[in-house]
Design a protein around this nucleic acid. Structure first.
Length: 451
DNA sequence: TCTGGGGTCCTAGGACCC
DNA sequence: TCTGGGGTCCTAGGACCC
């Protein structure tokens, strides 16, 4: 074991073929052999995944669904069913875990597996790659491609070379021949901008890239990206397979079917998003220290604003208030229209221990979570006092209430048979008079489901 | 045919402190 | 009174990935 001779690794990359579309074809046999397009079906939707049959018509992911419909009018256009895809992804991960403890999911449909040192248990890695491929096919019923190589960079490129439905193995001695003719665009991290800059300088293939001095790459792309390009051109990549990676941020955003113009509407939608993302935060037992909003105007210019909080929180009201404060911090150019809104949380820490003064907010979050758990995620939406929805109010959560949960139904709701179901008898606490305003940040208006 | 939603990582500039 | 750098934190934006 010399210092200059690190142990050779074997990294496997699995990539499910046309994942969402394949799951739909698996579940609905009548779709097999037909073009299937999974994506947003609204006026501003884009394609998530196109089956290979649909790709033959020129349909591909990230394409506006409207265009896909023109190219492939007889295709089956389906909205994504993420819960189902998550289930299929879990089944795949379980198979991978049978071969190595070191599995790194990259997304629902991709994962790295470190097979280094598994030979004694599972035999030669080449055979293991074939076996993994076979088991995923037969046990999930879904097609996939598998790449096996000495590092992550090459493994990912290998699975791409294996598509569709194959296994491709790159041995150390094959690296040059495998890599050299590839367009630089295929390298991880080389997107349209970097590829354009390289092309302008006469660099098109990995072989071309290898001919460029490290110092030149440094001057073109900076130290980090420059060094990364230099190493990738040679097939070098020491990055480990991470089996556990903590989330750095969570966010939720929506592109509206029609642009928003009224600041009141924009603020209301932001609060909805803040509530949703705060609920996810609490479900993950995390606290956030940074709140971020994102606004995409109708002309597609996109702005983000963020603020660092004095202390970590998962309080939906606090987060919503910060989001709206960020909105109002700049001018709201109403004439342009807002196409997309987003709320993001970062600076995440585990909520294992929290200072005493954070208990009340967390109880509020827990209360909301509890109501939604009991009555369904769609059973309640959230509004704030004085924002123009008095007829639909069914109760007010009072964050200062000792019990956390509270909100006996008001008379109107009770009179209608208590359809809101907010105030569970055993947890009911006095409800403030709904006609009394509650200062922003001090109360929430619970709204029964629409319709 | 106007262009989703979930993320990660990097850079650059200003504030602030030593 | 005028002059440094270095380090860190924060914010905004952009490139990229699936």
């Amino acid at each position: 074991m010399g210092y200059d001779c690190p142990m050779a690794r074997w990294i496997l990359h699995v990539d499910m073929d046309a994942f969402f579309a394949s799951v739909e074809q698996l579940d609905r046999p009548e779709l097999r052999g037909r073009p299937v397009i999974v994506g947003g079906l609204g006026p501003r939707g884009v394609v998530s995944t196109a089956s290979y049959e649909a790709r033959a018509f020129g349909v591909h992911s990230a394409m506006p669904t409207a265009k896909a419909r023109k190219l492939c009018p007889h295709g089956a256009f389906l909205a994504p069913r993420f819960a189902r895809y998550e289930e299929a992804a879990a089944a795949t991960r379980a198979i991978l875990s049978a071969f190595s403890p070191v599995v790194e999911p990259l997304s629902l449909d991709e994962a790295f597996v470190d097979l280094t040192g598994t030979e004694r248990l599972h035999g030669p890695v080449e055979r293991t790659a074939q076996e993994i491929h076979r088991r995923i096919r037969t046990e999930t019923g879904l097609p996939c491609s598998v790449g096996l190589a000495p590092n992550k960079l090459l493994a990912k490129l290998a699975s791409e070379a294996a598509k569709p439905g194959g296994v491709h193995i790159v041995h150390e001695e094959d690296v040059d021949g495998f890599l050299s003719p590839m367009p630089v665009r295929r390298l991880w991290g080389v997107g349209p901008q970097t590829a354009r800059k390289l092309a302008e300088r006469g660099v098109h293939t990995v072989s071309d890239l290898r001919g460029v001095d490290a110092s030149l790459l440094h001057s073109w792309f900076g130290p980090t990206a420059g060094a990364q390009l230099w190493r990738m051109a040679r097939g070098l990549d020491e990055s480990p397979v991470h089996s556990v990676r903590d989330a750095k941020s969570i966010s939720q955003e929506v592109t509206y079917p029609e642009d928003l113009y009224r600041e009141e509407d924009i603020a209301r939608e932001l609060r909805q998003l803040a509530m949703a993302v705060a609920t996810r935060l609490a479900a993950e037992a995390l606290l956030a220290t940074t709140v971020r909003i994102k606004i995409r105007w109708a002309d597609f210019t996109t702005r983000t604003r963020q603020v660092r909080l004095p202390e970590p929180t998962d309080h939906p009201v606090l987060i919503a208030d910060e989001a709206v404060a960020l909105l109002r911090r700049g001018e709201v150019q109403a004439e342009v229209g807002v196409r997309l809104l987003g709320v993001g949380l970062a600076g995440l820490i585990a909520a294992t221990f929290r200072p005493e003064h954070l208990f009340v907010p967390s109880q509020l979050g827990a209360a909301l979570h509890q109501v939604r758990t009991r009555h369904g995620a769609q059973s309640l939406s959230l509004g704030f006092p004085g924002e123009g929805h008095p007829r639909r109010e069914v109760g007010i959560l009072d964050p200062d209430a000792k019990d956390g949960v509270n909100g006996e139904m008001d008379d109107r709701s009770r009179g209608r048979g208590g359809r809101g179901g907010v105030g569970q008898r055993d947890r009911a606490v006095r409800l403030p008079d709904p006609d009394h305003g509650v200062p922003s940040g001090q109360g929430l208006v619970l709204l029964p489901a629409r319709g």
